[in-house]
């Protein structure tokens, strides 16, 4: 465990809390992509199957349970909550996210640490998480005005994996640990946020509304 890793996990948790606060306080999920949320549920389920097979960890296990519970709750709210589901931008959330699942599954089948059920699913979840934000970024581009909570949510989500990159650099030098799969997927994931980060920081510095081209 190192400070980068702890800060990264807390940032990830904060992003989810921001989204839950937005949905519960405004009773609205406008600007949030249900497809991205669906993909996150898939990411967490396929990644945290080892909850049952591996020894529980005082740190990881609570986080895994919280990530699973919150991501499922968010999808539940957006699909079934009578007030919230009316505010879902169904017609602008158009990204074909199913096209993301198959390539990740095929890639996981061929590139994984060990060819076992758990490891292939774990690799699938790593690859899927890297691209899961795409429907959300596409939805933001078509949103006329992005509310602050949504902007902060996406920023924190991007920042957490960027912090993981720092954690991996630290671990490479300090603990001589090499993890190609999450490294490359994490780089791709963070790179996808590059233009969002640019416009988010620009809008924050000019104290103006966040607007994606």
């Amino acid at each position: 465990m190192n400070a980068f890793r702890l800060l990264a996990d807390l940032t990830h948790l904060l992003s989810i809390i921001i989204l839950l606060v937005k949905i519960r306080t405004t009773k609205s999920c406008a600007g949030i992509s249900l497809k991205t949320q669906d993909l996150y549920v898939l990411v967490f389920i396929s990644r945290y199957l080892d909850l049952f097979t591996r020894p529980l960890s005082l740190y990881n296990t609570p986080f895994k349970l919280v990530f699973l519970a919150t991501s499922i709750t968010i999808v539940y709210y957006m699909r079934y909550h009578k007030v919230v589901k009316q505010t879902y931008n169904k017609d602008s959330d158009t990204f074909k996210h199913y096209f993301l699942i198959l390539p990740c599954a095929v890639l996981a089948f061929f590139i994984n640490p060990k060819f076992t059920f758990i490891e292939v699913l774990w690799s699938f979840s790593i690859y899927l998480e890297a691209v899961a934000i795409l429907p959300q970024l596409v939805l933001l581009q078509s949103s006329s005005n992005i509310d602050n909570l949504t902007g902060n949510y996406v920023f924190m989500l991007g920042a957490y994996r960027a912090l993981y990159l720092l954690n991996w650099i630290y671990r490479f030098f300090a603990e001589d640990v090499v993890r190609w799969i999450p490294w490359i997927a994490g780089l791709v994931q963070t790179a996808l946020y590059a233009d969002f980060f640019y416009y988010y920081i620009k809008s924050w510095r000019n104290n103006e509304r966040l607007k994606l081209p």
């Binding site: 954690n167 090499v178 999450p182």
Partner: peptide, 10 residues
């Protein structure tokens, strides 16, 4: 450097 399969990260 070892490519360990145990996942101690989230």
């Amino acid at each position: 450097a070892d490519q360990e399969a145990t996942h101690d990260e989230l």
